[in-house]
Design a protein around this nucleic acid. Structure first.
Lengths: 150, 150
DNA sequence: CTAGCACTTTACGTAAACGTCAACTAGCTC
DNA sequence: GAGCTAGTTGACGTTTACGTAAAGTGCTAG
């Protein structure tokens, strides 16, 4: 149940003529198993900036990657606001002044620390699960013995 | 910034006279850096069942451990309802029938799968962070060179 | 031409997880 | 016994992340 479309990096690859594929809002929604409503909401929150052909939105690879990162960030417990901050700073990178870049590095360090904490939490939680499962099996085994002994 | 008080397992240790320490709601709140309101809310949601001395709540080790697990679960993105379900089933374990135990094992397997997915997400996110940081440093270095070359 | 579908905006609704405030009570302590 | 501190209940407010319903636009097939 991971993200289906795989590739990485917020940036556009340097290859001259990449897949110039575009997506409608419905396609994108199906791809990531979210509703169109969700995608529009993310745009409203500044996480996506799709092209407009007249009235309708047109999504490119960049938008798809952003959406993927957004959803992953969400699964990791980041708020949309946090995710937006990173994306905004990243977008401002090429002409970003040193102060902004420094800020971005700070945020990245924070996120990194979050990840470490989560890893530790997961390890601890896995141990709890091991323990509970062991006790559970134990009780089940006892029930088995009783059933067959009687 | 992990949980301060360390020990594990939902169960009471078999040692006859453990630390019979109790906590007021305020103490517990400070220990875990949450508000009393939060603790009362968790009780209302069936996650804690402190003793009552007249009007006031008295928390034992069991409650502290539950609170710790609850907070850890939260950090991992579980809802209070999910956490409660596990706790309830766990509490019903000793006299639990086989069906309930089976159900608990199922839930544990689910949680385990969640953990695996999260680990994968974290690995991917860490790679993204590595990449963004690298690009960031690159740009910073270029700024340095320009500054010194000019 | 119109029916149907995908898309659009606007606006109000909702669930989870608390925060905040008001109005108590109970135990010190000076 | 007045004041302080910590605890209590109850009720309403708030934020986040969407869901849902209403009313309209635009294209395509029959």
């Amino acid at each position: 149940m991971n993200d289906s479309p795989q590739d990485s990096m917020l940036s556009d690859a340097p290859s001259p003529e990449k897949q110039r594929r575009t997506y409608s809002i419905g396609e994108l929604a199906r791809l990531f198993e979210v509703t169109p409503r969700t995608i529009r909401f993310y745009e409203q929150e500044g996480l996506l900036e799709p092209e407009r052909r007249g009235q309708t939105r047109i999504y490119h690879e960049k938008d798809r990657v952003r959406l993927k990162l957004t959803l992953r960030g969400k699964r990791l417990g980041f708020s949309l606001a946090e995710i937006r901050e990173v994306i905004e700073l990243y977008d401002a990178m090429p002409d970003g002044n040193a102060r902004q870049l420094q800020r971005l590095l700070e945020i990245l360090a924070e996120k990194r620390a979050d990840m470490e904490r989560q890893l530790e939490d997961i390890r601890l939680m896995q141990r709890e699960l091991d323990d509970v499962e062991a006790r559970c099996q134990e009780v089940l085994d006892n029930l088995q013995h009783q059933g067959s002994a009687k």
